[in-house]
Amino acid sequence: MLRVFDFFAHAKSESLWMAHFCTGCCSLEMAAAMGPRYDWERYGFLPTPTPRQADILIITGLVTKKMLPALLRTYAQMPEPKYVLALGACSFDGGPYNDSLAVIKNPTEILPADVFVAGCPPKPEAIISGMEEIKKKMKKGIPSAASQGGLWREMKF
């Protein structure tokens, strides 16, 4: 019995599909990570057109006030288990837009991310290695950060 469970857990961690969602300029490097030189499909990542089939949500950099409800809604639409990857300085503390009040400075306090990838924008290699970190986390069976807390439950979306 144990073996069967192991296999499915392994399968889950090895096949990460991401919801197609762009919030900021980091998505440009995310596109490059899909491209021929970095080709993240080698590792089994695949973009899907709808959140219903996705396993991870990528916050690609900045999140504006107007965008936040859409982001949370997308997250809520995803099936369990779901993880969040945050790209770039913006998703951590607002990055270069720290002074701009149209941008939310702490999106990951609202929707906690499992892995942060540093950079502005992070290089494609870094994005892929960030995804690999999520795999490790899943293999260890650590529950996703957003399921443990975060302001997102209290917000309307």
């Binding site: 919030t23 504006t64 107007k66 837009y97 002074d99 701009s100 941008v103």
Partner: peptide, 22 residues
Amino acid sequence: GFVWRALEHLVTKKDFIGAIVA
């Protein structure tokens, strides 16, 4: 306006070189 970052306002908070970031 989904990626409105108020760049035009943001530059006024930076110096002339820092503004190129925005």
